[in-house]
Design a protein around this nucleic acid. Structure first.
Lengths: 210, 210
DNA sequence: CTCAACCCTGACCATACGGTCAGAAAACGA
DNA sequence: TCGTTTTCTGACCGTATGGTCAGGGTTGAG
């Protein structure tokens, strides 16, 4: 789209520092929760003095909010394949694949989101009431259409969506538990494939689409 | 079992205070997380001076550990019906019912557990490695037996268990999100029944047991 | 080269937290 | 009733936290 603009040294370091801080913050918030996380810890992990964090992000809350927004954007994007699918097998199948992949690649973000919602969404309540509500209504309508067309069994679209969220995000949020039950080892590529396949098989058959 | 023993006034108030504190702590830990919770807040909610909490529970960690243990016990107990069932329809169906009921009645406990596991289970790692590991192995074996007997489709028993945990606990842990998407209202009796039915229908059909 | 705008940070501050303790109050057994 | 054990609590303490700020360094447009 835009021509490759000249990036000043200032802009470059700014972007790099912000990314560094956000990445460190995501990890620390995921591991310690909002209350347990400290700016000092985030600073150390980002390799910057604490005062510098406050130059880029005025308050702890502001930094936290950015982290939460990031994962939310990623999830919204994951639903693209959902829409243009001809039916539930392709649409829901692709959605499960995408969300499982996110659980693997962005486990920390998922945990931060889970924490935020569990504590009553003090920071992103407006997102829930606007973006997420609209998003949900749209997909529920699509699922209902598939049901009306006889492409899947009649199930409550909303509860199906909750189930998709729950099962896929579980592999991120409860990853530590799963690892422990896996003998203390992280899931291998093969095991991740098996997890994806299990979830897809059970749900797609469960909604009468396979 | 035991004869109705004479309960001294001391024992009575002790028990009452401990219960009061544990109940308040569960709520505060669920709402604020371990790091965000303060002994002062718990004390206020329990209607006791802060120093009194430290008389009953030496440290914040000790109090927290007790809260986590409570929900864990409740969950273990919920699996009783699982065992003595003749097949997956009764066994898994009853387990889903029980766990959904717990999500409704003990949402705070569920959230505390989720938080604990998400943050790497610093306090109850030993439980995961002993009790939970054994429990999981036992149920996985039972599910495998059902599969071998042709009572359900061949699915990975562990991933099925994860799915059961994820879907049922989601209604507690993400209850706030669900409420928001429900127009800001808590689920009614009817809606809870529908939720249970949806989960059971999809999963039981998904494993080829209905 | 100049200078204004922006970037960086060590030192500092007020606050709030978990935890302690001395001693008062209450309960109990004899 | 008396002495002992247990329960309770206001006042206090050391520490760690989020946030501030003055002043020095760096960048880049003109």
């Amino acid at each position: 789209m835009s021509a490759p603009e000249r990036i000043s040294k200032r802009d470059a370091t700014r972007r790099e520092n912000e990314a560094r801080i956000l990445s460190a913050a995501e990890k620390v918030f995921a591991e310690a929760g909002f209350g347990g996380a400290t700016m000092q810890l985030i600073a150390d992990m980002a390799g910057l003095p604490k005062a510098n964090l406050h130059y880029y992000f005025a308050t702890k809350e502001e930094l936290y909010r950015k982290v939460v927004q990031q994962i939310f954007e990623i999830w919204l994007h994951a639903a693209d394949s959902f829409d243009k699918a001809p039916g539930p097998v392709e649409g829901i199948g692709a959605y499960i694949d995408a969300k499982m992949e996110i659980s693997r690649r962005h486990a920390d973000g998922s945990k931060v989101w889970a924490s935020e919602v569990m504590h009553g969404a003090p920071v992103i309540q407006d997102y829930l009431e606007t973006t997420l509500r609209d998003w949900t209504a749209g997909r529920a309508a699509l699922i209902q259409k598939w049901i009306d067309e006889g492409k899947m069994a009649p199930v409550d679209p909303r509860h199906l969506l909750y189930m998709l969220w729950a099962t896929t995000q579980h592999y991120a949020d409860f990853g530590h538990q799963i690892e422990t039950l896996n003998g203390g080892r992280t899931l291998s590529d093969t095991q991740w494939r098996a997890a994806k396949a299990s979830v897809k098989t059970i749900i797609l058959r469960g909604i009468g689409a396979a």
